[in-house]
């Protein structure tokens, strides 16, 4: 029994049941296939496949259980990404992006400050002059606005 796969299968089934209930809100349609037709068919197949997967799983050995090798780095990275999103509009793209890049490179153990800072600055400047100034991509300015 592979525990990880089982958890994923159960999650899929729970989500399927939830979405199936949601399809009852879809309006009636006078025609061959309504808006709920295809989603329901897919949900049935999804549940069936997951049940098969669970059935097959019974005889499998959990020889290499799924584990995250350096959980703290994934957690820190996730936090960094969430922070980037949270500050994207208020601080502005051109402030958060270099900070994010520098922090991410630190996290990935790049220990060459000149390289780290020049990569972050060059990336941001290229985006600023090419995408923001020239192509008018409406990136949020935040503090700089």
């Amino acid at each position: 029994m592979k525990k990880g796969t089982l958890v994923i299968n159960v999650l899929f089934i729970v989500a399927s049941v939830f979405l199936f209930i949601e399809t009852f809100k879809f309006p009636y349609f006078k025609g061959p296939v309504g808006p709920a037709g295809m989603p329901r068919l897919l949900i049935f197949i999804l549940v069936a496949l997951n049940l098969i997967s669970i059935w097959q799983n019974r005889s499998l050995k959990d020889d290499k259980p799924v584990k995250i090798e350096s959980p703290w780095r994934i957690i820190a990275g996730t936090a960094l990404i969430l922070l980037y999103l949270a500050l994207f509009n208020s601080l502005g793209y051109f402030v958060v992006t270099p900070l994010f890049l520098i922090a991410m490179m630190f996290l990935m153990q790049v220990r060459r400050p000149v390289m780290v800072i020049s990569v972050a600055v060059i990336f941001t400047l290229v985006v600023y002059f090419f995408f923001y100034k020239e192509l008018m991509l409406p990136l949020p300015l935040g503090l700089l606005g």
Partner: peptide
């Protein structure tokens, strides 16, 4: 990292 977060 925590410092960077706090600063920002």
């Amino acid at each position: 990292l925590a410092l960077v977060f706090a600063l920002s």
